[in-house]
Design a protein around this nucleic acid. Sequence first.
DNA 1: TTGTATGCGTTATCAT
DNA 2: ATGATAACGCATACAA
Lengths: 345, 345
Amino acid sequence: MRPRNVTIKDIAREAKVSIATVSNVINNKGRVSEETRRLVQSLIDKYNYTPDLSARSLKNKHSHLISVVVPYLAKGEFEDNPYFWQVVSGIESGASSENFHVMLTGISDSPDMSFATERHLDGLVVIGASEQADHFQHIMDLNLPCVFMDSYITKADVYQVYSNDKFGGYLGTKYLVSLGYEKIILVSGIKGKIAEGSGVDYQRWLGYKQALAEAGIEYNPELVIEEGNTMLGGYYAAQKVIGSIDRKTAIFVLSDIGAMGLIRGLNELGISVPKDVSVVGYDDIFYADFMVPSLTTIRQDIFRKGERAVDLLLAQIEKREIEAKTILLPVELKIRESTTKNFSQ
Amino acid sequence: MRPRNVTIKDIAREAKVSIATVSNVINNKGRVSEETRRLVQSLIDKYNYTPDLSARSLKNKHSHLISVVVPYLAKGEFEDNPYFWQVVSGIESGASSENFHVMLTGISDSPDMSFATERHLDGLVVIGASEQADHFQHIMDLNLPCVFMDSYITKADVYQVYSNDKFGGYLGTKYLVSLGYEKIILVSGIKGKIAEGSGVDYQRWLGYKQALAEAGIEYNPELVIEEGNTMLGGYYAAQKVIGSIDRKTAIFVLSDIGAMGLIRGLNELGISVPKDVSVVGYDDIFYADFMVPSLTTIRQDIFRKGERAVDLLLAQIEKREIEAKTILLPVELKIRESTTKNFSQ
DNA sequence: TTGTATGCGTTATCAT
DNA sequence: ATGATAACGCATACAA
């Protein structure tokens, strides 16, 4: 199809040196005389030669290719949540600046991870894995550099990055309490995660409970709605909470995308935010500030989180010294229009 | 690091056959006796053997890897627009169902496309390229199977998929006219594209003009604001249009994400949608229905668009028969809350 | 039907 | 400082 590519051999021939020498100047290994180095380099430039990565990978067992995998999500939960895309953007950005490429491994893919070894992937960024699931062991069995995001793996020696979810849960709840609300509904993610005691939502729930306790408000499990951190989940949650909203009620949704669905759902039921009820979200996805009303939320720097994950992954791949295998990112409360003081007293 | 992988040789040895035979059963080439086929297959299963793709790629010159590239966007324009992610989702979905993997090639990457040949990529999906730009020739020079999305390349024999942008522009405009508006502001994308006569926005603009002409409304270039199809672009556009909004005015924004920014911007300036002004968007991104107000828009099936692009690409890669090198997808008007009849008369 | 041998483009070892 | 050569894992042309 396209003209045969120029290889290391062609360069060697034209430079009248051996391929070993060319290889050496490419990887500036070995001691090559400045003179031949320049000669070879000039030919490389002239022919626009770049080494064949398949050949290299065959030899080296690495590929400068990493993959991001999101194993535990249903179709749509991933693609319809800007959170993930912003993470992936950060990953791609961090990777490409270090000359790594990023493969996207769709969530609907089979649990089969063989592609990782087949392609000599250099590493994996795994988002939202759960230690209990089969997948986790599969991934560990790969024995590949890995960074887990948002996973709260308890096993030692696992590279992880997350943000301070417990504190985030605490912050959001405390803020609503400080506004004068006494009944804080928590709209959370995947059913069972809290009971299971795993995942980010569990951590955020811990913070929620702590803030409640500090405020002397009794924890009421009936106020915890597990509807999924999706737009539709939030939308349906609206119907579930509608009955229990009174003047002292506020709602804390553990994802911005869920909060968006909820606010929409509430609107359709004739409830206006923040006039009738205050809502806090979580994540600070890129358009949280542009929604109507703009969303009070727990902000984490999502893009940066992705970048940090690659940093950590590449450090592991390149066996660099690192401070710690675990990176904990800060969160902060971002006050916007979806919350307002409770004037009911 | 991890235990040496089992190779074709290991299987051959244990099966007491040659590697050629093993290779034959893997690719079910050649005539292999049913008996040995079964034997070899059982060992393949037993050892969980999968062929090394780097080796294969070195031999074959293909990789079962495609890449999506978005060459002409500034940082943020890509990652903050759900449109692109939905396209990418569609691409990933289509590709993975055909056992192809997808590489993400970030927009901030250098114009250098050498990675495509280095990695023996099987093909490219290029989004929003412009025939005039240098990039275009670079990509064509690769001589690689390619599908251009949203590009309106005039050169013959180029594989393309787009949706009916001109009709979309027509539909949105006509609808606003039918609601009783006589002054339709058009908020468009990248500056100069319309003058240049290229890209989707130019096509949509053509449709806009046509609808105006049919309605007997004189085209007024001052009503065309080129502020970028981004959230911030829309936001700033609000300040530009504010002065010229009267009772007969409606606004057509050529992206939902821009419309979101615009509506937010208008709100901050004390103008409410649709009470004070009607707004139509474009794309029907996944949350258009969940915004407040929900967005009247020109719908295209974005995910499907991505899927169709891979279909076309894979057909090209596998040299299958196809009906046409160009796929034109339909658009439709989706009426929601951001538009309302003009009662000013 | 099956085996042998060669080459794909590199890197690395060992000579020279 | 440089060159010859083996090896990486696979596919394939050709032989048997």
